[in-house]
Amino acid sequence: MNLAYTLRLADDALIIGHRLSEWCGHGPILEQDIALTNTALDHLGRARSLCQYAAEQYNAATAEEKKNSFSSVAIQQLTEAGKQLTEDDIAYLRDGWDYRSLLLLEQPNIDWAFTVARAFYYDTFNYYFFSHLKNSNDTTLAAIAEKSLKEVTYHLRWSSEWVVRLGDGTDESHNRIQQAINELWQYTGEPFVMNDADNVAVSTGAGVNLADIQPLWTARIAEILQEATLTMPPAGSWMQQGGKEGRHTEHLGYILAEMQYMQRTYPGMEW
């Protein structure tokens, strides 16, 4: 069973999709409003596939496994009532501590530069991650990776081009993107931290050894930043972590309050 591993990937997709969807209707120009929404829809689509797969695994698990999977009360109640979980239960009924997404992804949009920098860090990670996950012995994860890789390849192209455009654009854009690159840097260590879920998944052949992709990530980031005439933040600086263990920044609470509002207010209804 790769439930914990699946959930982490689902949560990443859900949270970044949520953040990008906040841009819809507010982009700097119509064409880019539409472009960013396409990306948000890709992430949301991946979130759905992964949430469905997570629900499937949970429903097939033993009572003991179920108990250890989540501490959210709403999920426990459904389980005690003998209900099968759906993708929506996974997304809407878990509390923040059961969310395993990267801290990077819940950081607010702030402006186009922060949105681009966040996407650039994550898309680069995703690109190498899914290139490896394609070979997972979990056939569902492998299939999702295969499909996602096509989408992510385009995302990476988009965010890399924007980093270059802003870095090598005007003085103002250069300063703004440099600031975003610097401030978000503290969240770029966490994607490569191997936790229990990672170790288990790697040992069974389902997951990706993050140590394999870190040098690829670093090289690619360095290459694009150089093309963008930007300075790479110093190696060895302090890195935030905790998202993968369910310890988040304050931002996640607000995201969930908004995202889960309907399901929490009107429990158990069809929409």
Binding site: S21, E22, C24, G25, T37, R48, D88, A91, Y261
Partner: peptide, 25 residues
């Protein structure tokens, strides 16, 4: 969009609002 009550509705609404951007364009 951020408050849609199911993931399916969220995707549909997002695609719909995006279509309106296209119409404007």
């Amino acid at each position: 969009i951020t408050r849609a009550p199911s993931l399916r509705r969220k995707a549909v609404l997002l695609a719909k609002v995006q279509d309106e951007a296209g119409h404007g364009l």
